[in-house]
Write a protein that binds this DNA or RNA. Structure first.
Lengths: 229, 229, 229, 229
DNA sequence: GATGAATGAGACTTCATTCAT
DNA sequence: AATGAATGAAGTCTCATTCAT
């Protein structure tokens, strides 16, 4: 019964994710994964050749949870501004969940240092994921530039890298900083920071601002019209 | 001879940093740290109560290397634009070095999950470091806003958080992505991305640009066409 | 096969008893117990959580060897004098064997000082054993008093405590003293000393002495005139 | 200053006795003995060649505390009954103190198993002590027999061994049994049990018993005249 | 395929002892 | 003679992995 086997595999990965998130990879015992998955230790080794392999698959499986995170991005018919806003909202909405699972990713770094095989498999997948993410975001940007919604002078690559880096950086910081004090290390922080970047991306509305500038000397309003870019 | 003792401590920490960076915390053996530091294993335990404590101190000591990284920030008499450019350059210049040592930090996450004491000590110090960094950057921003060099509508907190997150995010990604393909995961990438953010911070030059905007439809895009990248 | 497991446990305890008796608890290495028991070191820890726990069980198991030592005591139908003589003979007969194993017990004292858990388990069992022993002896004494074989003025508790203490004291002394010089530190010594106590217990033969006593007024003092000897 | 040296040695032994009684020999660290004695670890080794030697001396020194315990025994001019009563009272009065220090002695057994030198030194001294004790008690007994205070049919050796064994046995049992339940494991227990033995030693009051014996042929007295020994 | 008892290499840590100062 | 930092041998215990059932 193939279903059983696949389900069993899933149960094992879920158990591994749970325990590793709680205790850390090194402190996690194969025994505990086995018992929490409801299988024997021997069965673990029927599915994964070693603890490290199991861990890499565990980390990778946790990334798959975010596959559905970027659906808005893919609706190419929607307005670019809506699409990118939807993306930002998805990221913000998933922040807390991702934040938890990023712990797993951190631990992968140790594992990777001692297993080149694990390194290649993990990093390869991460690169694919980031490439897809980058490409999706770039698509939106290009669409927006083409439609005139976004500034025409944007370097798509730079904006994309900055956007992704900002999200990752907030995630990273949320790992140790106190959201009560550093309030931007949070889902709302993601909304705010990505929102600010978004302002820098968006084209200034045609007429009006220009007029304003023409009319009023007050440089004060100028900065507002020139978004953060 | 107190010097000897301090120097010995330093040698141990340096050895630990070396080995842990190479092999990872878990794969590192106390024996190897001892022999590479030129002391006996017992001496290790005269200085650090446990492997974990030694590791936390190792990570923290690696952060101290970057204390000198922000000197430009502190020269309050310099022009805000120069100060923030100097900061960006410092970060970019230190990127490769920091990138290596961030491996240590990643490994700390595993350790932290199983030792509340280590967690408090490490996280506490990280928070202080980030607080200082944040405050230094915010000072520059406030000075620039006051001097009219930066836009007056900036939310200092947001800009600071975004700036820091961008740097951290690039650092994080450089851990696994290939700079040959994703060229922004590099010191130059830091320059480019932070530079782009900087553009969004900087006030539009007084009259002229505004005029340009007022008159010619396209020129407007000119400054914009020279994107931060 | 449950038998196997129990047998393995027995083999381990036997090996532990052997080695600990030879070298002492502290000088005994888990490796040696394991190899002498024909199992791996890991298996040792599958059966006993720690070296100390193994030791406590080893000591306790050695006490079980003496369970069969007091059968005569339990044949309540036998004559009290025979029963108590049988008991004395059992103790004397077991002296040399017990004497060896008392070494184990001595060592328990060190262990007990640093492990309250071990203390409770070991002392608890010892108390039970002594309580059973005490009760068995007291039963005989009471039966003998009732039957007129023993003196009626005996304080059962005192006689019991003295009897047991005498045996333990001889055992203790045999640990360091030389039976060649102090000949009573031996199985025969047990026979002699317990025999002497027995004389003090036994009622003087029927008539005659009573008569003697009859001459002197206070019959009350009679028992006192016939000392424990 | 020789005084200083002797005092220092005493301080070390006192510290060792303290710590070993609390934690047990194995759990006792040379560091702690040194610091509690107010000397450096190196100094310890100026006085005692090894931890084991220090321990043996510690145990032996604790026995010296009881040298003054048997003064009454030595006043050969006093009445035998008074002398033996004084001895019993001394032992009872010292019970609690001896009881504590017996812990030290128990631990010596482990040490002795791995160090023949320690064994010889410790056991040799113990034998001397017991020999002196035995001789002192035997003296009293002989004096009492000679004076008619004690029964003439006593086997001095048996009585002495029983007396000593009883005391040691109670001491041993007090190590693990609960005086609240087994009330004879106590100073009073010593009084009671030795008191009972004393009754068996004491000659029946002058005239009457003697008369009795005189009157009644031999048989009756035979068993009595043939003491348990 | 599943199980889980057995394995044993190997790690951290301790601590008696030394010896330069 | 005193000190106490340094030493390093050695021990307990862990746990990933195996394999007979």
């Amino acid at each position: 019964m193939p279903t059983t086997r696949i389900q069993k595999r899933r149960r094992i990965l879920a158990a591994a994710r749970e325990v590793c998130s709680e205790k850390g990879f090194e402190a996690t015992r194969m025994d505990e994964i086995a018992s929490r998955a409801g299988v024997s230790k021997g069965t673990l080794y029927n599915f994964f050749p070693s603890k490290e392999d199991l861990f890499v698959d565990t980390v990778l499986s946790s990334y798959q949870d975010f596959d559905g995170l970027l659906p808005a991005v893919e609706d190419a018919s929607a307005e670019p501004v809506r699409r990118i806003e939807a993306l930002a909202e998805s990221l913000a909405g998933g922040f807390d969940q991702i934040s938890q699972q990023i712990q797993l990713a951190h631990q992968a770094w140790s594992v990777v240092l001692r297993s080149p095989g694990a390194r290649d498999r993990l990093f390869g997948t991460l690169r694919e994921i980031y490439a897809g993410y980058t490409e999706g975001l770039a698509d939106i940007l290009r669409a927006g530039i083409a439609s005139g919604d976004f500034r025409t002078d944007l370097d798509v690559e730079v904006v994309t890298a900055t956007w992704i880096a900002t999200f990752d950086g907030l995630l990273y910081r949320a790992g140790f900083d106190d959201p009560a004090k550093i309030q931007l290390c949070s889902a709302d922080g993601v909304r705010t920071c990505l929102g600010w970047i978004l302002e820098g991306i968006t084209a200034v509305s045609e007429a009006t601002p220009t007029d304003t500038h023409a009319v009023t000397p007050p440089p004060l309003s100028v900065p507002l019209e020139e978004p953060p870019t």
